[in-house]
Simulated scan of single mutants.
Amino acid sequence: MPSRPILTATALLSLSLWLTPATAAPGADPFEGDPYQSHPWVDMRKEFLGPTAKAVFDDRVQVRGPAFAEDPMNVPITVSVKDLPGVDRIIVLVDRNPIRKVLEYQPLTALPSVSFRFKLEQASPIRAAARTADGVWHVGGTLVDSAGGGCTVSGATRKDGSWTQTLGLVSARVFDATPIPGEPAETATGSRLRLKVMHPMDTGLVGGIPAFYVNRLSVRDTQDKELLRLQTFEPVSENPVFSFDFPVKPAGALRIVGTDNNGNRIDARLE
Rank of each mutant, 00 (worst) to 15 (best):
P5G: 00
I6Y: 12
I6A: 11
L7Q: 14
T8F: 05
A11W: 10
A11L: 13
L12N: 07
A22G: 11
A24M: 09
A24Y: 03
A24F: 08
A25L: 14
D29E: 05
D34V: 11
P35I: 11
H39P: 13
D43G: 15
G50C: 13
K54A: 13
D59A: 07
R60E: 08
G65Y: 04
P66Y: 14
A67T: 13
A69S: 11
D71R: 11
V75S: 03
V75I: 10
V81A: 00
K82N: 14
G86I: 09
G86Y: 05
D88I: 00
V92I: 08
V92F: 06
V94M: 12
D95Y: 04
P98R: 13
V102E: 07
V102P: 04
E104T: 11
P107G: 12
K119T: 05
K119Q: 15
S124P: 10
S124E: 14
P125K: 05
I126Y: 04
R127P: 02
R131T: 06
G135C: 06
V136A: 01
G141S: 07
D145F: 12
D145V: 02
S146T: 10
G149Q: 05
D160E: 03
G161M: 06
W163R: 00
T166D: 07
V170P: 01
V174L: 15
T178Q: 14
P179G: 07
P181A: 09
G182V: 11
A185G: 01
A188T: 08
S191V: 06
R192F: 06
R192K: 10
L193F: 05
R194S: 09
K196H: 10
V197A: 04
M198R: 05
P200L: 04
M201R: 01
D202T: 06
G204N: 10
G207V: 07
A211I: 08
V219Q: 04
E226I: 10
E234Y: 02
V236Q: 00
V241S: 13
F242D: 12
F244V: 15
P247M: 09
K249T: 15
G258T: 04
T259N: 12
G263N: 10
I266G: 06
E271D: 15
